[in-house]
């Protein structure tokens, strides 16, 4: 492992990072019988918020009513707790490797404003797609792949395949 630089550029060896991530995923299946996720917590938060404002709307929605309304407790959900842990774990790593810094990361060729607009749009589109595919890169693709789910592999190939092409369209934002 390299010496820790003060500019926050120190990263774990990617294969070591992968082994740690894979071991956490394995433990998740061994302990809780399920994989890791991220977008599911957003789904539950949205359903809980809508349920607070318009409970009748949730009751009549074929989508929300799967997660909220009635006796369901969308915020007392495994994924919601897991995502709180993700925040804490990433913050801890940021402290250890000296990366905590408030900034907008962007290519020097674009403005901060442009970067933030694309981040917002990207998040919106990703969030939309994650609901259609029943999970994101972690919940559907990575966790699905660990248990050899066909759907997990299909989603993984669709995400990365499309991103390779789409990245070229957005290349001015990155390189």
């Amino acid at each position: 492992m390299k010496k820790i630089n003060n500019d926050g550029s120190f990263y774990l060896n990617p294969y070591l990072g992968g082994v740690i991530l894979g071991t956490v995923l394995l433990l998740s299946f061994y302990i809780s019988g399920r994989g890791l996720g991220a977008s599911g917590a957003v789904k539950n938060s949205v359903a809980a918020t809508v349920n607070m404002i318009a409970p009748q709307h949730v009751e009549h929605s074929a989508y929300y009513s799967q997660f909220a309304g009635g006796d369901k407790k969308p915020m007392s959900n495994w994924l919601v707790f897991e995502v709180l842990g993700v925040l804490a774990g990433a913050f801890l790593s940021g402290i250890i490797f000296n990366r905590i810094k408030i900034k907008v990361e962007h290519s020097p060729k674009i403005t901060e404003r442009r970067r933030l607009l694309f981040a917002l749009g990207g998040g919106l589109i990703f969030g939309f797609g994650s609901q259609l595919a029943r999970g994101c890169t972690s919940g559907a693709a990575l966790s699905g792949m660990a248990v050899l789910s066909l759907g997990g592999y299909i989603t993984m190939i669709a995400i990365f395949g499309t991103a390779f092409g789409a990245a070229w369209l957005f290349r001015k934002n990155w390189i």
Binding site: G121, F126, F128, G129, A158
Partner: peptide, 13 residues
């Protein structure tokens, strides 16, 4: 379709 949509969001964001 969900994966394709996520791929676009990934490259954008």
């Amino acid at each position: 379709v969900g994966g394709v949509i996520m791929g676009i969001g990934f490259a954008m964001g």
